[in-house]
Design a protein around this nucleic acid. Structure first.
Length: 460
RNA sequence: GGCUAGGUGGCAGAGUGGUCAUGCAGCGGACUGCAACUCCGCCCACGCCGGUUCGAUUCCGACCCUAGCCUCCA
């Protein structure tokens, strides 16, 4: 089975073949760092982290995820808070990486920042002007959409219809309504760089084109991002890059994740239903959030609710419950492989729900197995699968001990369990039940197993 | 209005031209001193109307509904 990916440009699922055998380049549109990432921002980070993990099994992957650190929203945040721009961006870059790490997102190979690539952007803009794809007007440089015949193919838009239905007010310096800004002038108090067109700052789209070119080459294998970026962001990137490169394709596969809604409604600040990852991870284990995000196929819309999280938490309890108590050595882990059906599910356009079904099948097999050797092998396979999915990274004992609020110390719990077991041995069930109720009241659940009594915080 | 995705059981969410998704919840049973965990079994389904077919939830067409994009946005 080879990897199949749904390519937005072709509009269908196609076999993945990298440009260079054995090597893959991937670019993901990362955050604009003016605020904490919300749960919707986390979806592409998690989903394409999973893709990166899958790709690394078979290819030498170079994965870049950019940081947009020059943007009007950042400028606005600076004015609003009175804090310097550098301070704001530095703070939210750190927060973003910490928050994503909590969700099991591994750092990309390259994390290019827009402000460190202005020179490359200026060079690309010059090239576009020289080749007749861009023009200067009133201190702005604009991309001339009419010069690019293939404009609109990614988002499947007919330019004439778009112009007819346009609700946008056309800036006076534009030749045509859909020409977009490559470079714009800056006022003295705003960030700016010297350029052939005067002091200014780049438009939004050019940074990705310039940084992808610099770090990944003229044509990249995979370009990923949220659905909403298809137009105009990716359409414009594609136009800039392929025009600057004499028609060479910008990306060979375009991947876009679906939107996340909150209790059936769009997440938006005005509705006050924006969930920040930074806040969520204070009370909810990152793996629970990650699993919730992977519980739907990445292309599908995903509705986020308390039930989504609760269900994900119970799913993880079940998975951790299966491996709990099985001693798996480093050697066992090293020898283990991920089951074929789980790989096959992921290779089918990253079908994470199907992969989870395979994961649960493995857990069930482990729960049923009685032979110690077999149990170790299966548990090792579960850990190997977890490594691929970014789950099961905690020690099972810590998992069950960790995620709750009870104020009873672990030692006290162990002592009470010993007392209860002593009572049970004397068939004094009344005392045993009193102790169990006592623990239950403190949020501790007791489980009598063949190899002794285990406990977990939380009910269930 | 245009474009792009969708509409599956109580919920979440895969998939398929004729036999099981999976998980959570619920029900019955086993295990247990009683529980919990676990196991076994069960319940509940494919928006609507036509068409193709021996047979469609799955293919085709119309319709209804939903979401996203068309303006900064993952």
């Amino acid at each position: 089975m080879t990897l199949q990916l749904h390519d937005t440009l072709q509009g269908k699922k196609v076999p993945f073949v990298p440009l260079k055998e054995g090597e893959v380049t991937m670019y993901l549109c990362g955050p604009t760092v003016y605020n904490y990432a919300h749960i919707g921002n986390a979806r592409p980070a998690v989903v394409f982290d999973l893709l990166a993990r899958l790709l690394r099994r078979s290819y030498k992957l170079t994965f870049a995820r950019n940081i947009t650190d020059v943007d009007d929203k950042i400028n606005a945040a600076s004015v609003e808070t009175g804090k310097p721009i550098d301070e704001i961006t530095a703070r939210f870059i750190t927060a973003y990486n910490d928050d994503m790490a909590a969700l099991g997102v591994r750092p990309p190979d390259i994390e290019p920042r827009a402000t460190q690539h202005v020179g490359e952007m200026v060079a690309m803009i010059k090239t576009l002007i020289d080749k007749g794809f861009a023009y200067e007007a009133e201190g702005h440089v604009l991309f001339d959409v009419s010069s690019d015949e293939s404009y609109g193919t990614l988002s499947k838009r007919d330019l004439r219809e778009m112009i007819a239905g346009s609700r946008v007010e056309v800036a006076p310096y534009k030749k045509a309504a859909h020409d977009f800004v490559l470079w714009k002038p800056s006022t003295p108090e705003l960030p700016g760089w010297d350029s052939p067109w005067g002091r200014g700052r780049p438009g939004w789209h050019i940074e990705c084109s310039a940084m992808a070119e610099k770090h990944l080459g003229t044509t990249i294998d995979i370009h990923a991002g949220g659905r909403d970026l298809v137009f105009p962001h990716h359409e414009n990137e594609m136009a800039q890059s392929s025009c600057a490169h004499d028609g060479a394709p910008f990306a060979r596969y375009w991947l876009h994740n679906g939107f996340l809604s909150m209790d059936q409604t769009k997440m938006s600040k005005s509705l006050g239903n924006v969930l920040l990852v930074h806040e969520l991870i204070k009370t909810i284990p990152g793996e629970v959030i990650r699993l919730a995000l992977l519980s739907a196929h990445y292309k599908q819309p995903l509705d986020w609710s308390d039930e989504t999280l609760e269900s994900a938490r119970r799913m993880l309890d079940r998975l951790y419950g299966a491996v709990q108590g099985v001693e798996v050595s480093e050697a066992d882990r090293a020898a283990a492989d991920v089951p074929g059906d789980l790989i096959a599910a992921l290779e089918d356009d990253l079908n994470s729900p199907r992969a989870m079904a395979a994961f649960f099948a493995l857990a069930k097999e482990l729960n049923k197995a009685t032979d110690d050797r077999k149990r170790i092998t299966l548990a090792a396979q579960m850990y190997a699968s977890g490594d691929l999915l970014g789950l099961l990274a905690n020690d099972p004992e810590e998992w069950f001990a960790g995620h709750a609020t009870g104020d009873l110390a672990s030692d006290d719990i162990e002592a009470l369990i010993e007392k209860r077991n002593a009572a049970k041995a004397e068939r004094d069930f009344e005392t045993a039940d009193i102790i169990r109720d006592q623990l239950m009241a403190a949020g501790i659940t007791i489980q009598d197993g063949r190899e002794g009594t285990t406990w977990r915080r939380g009910q269930g």
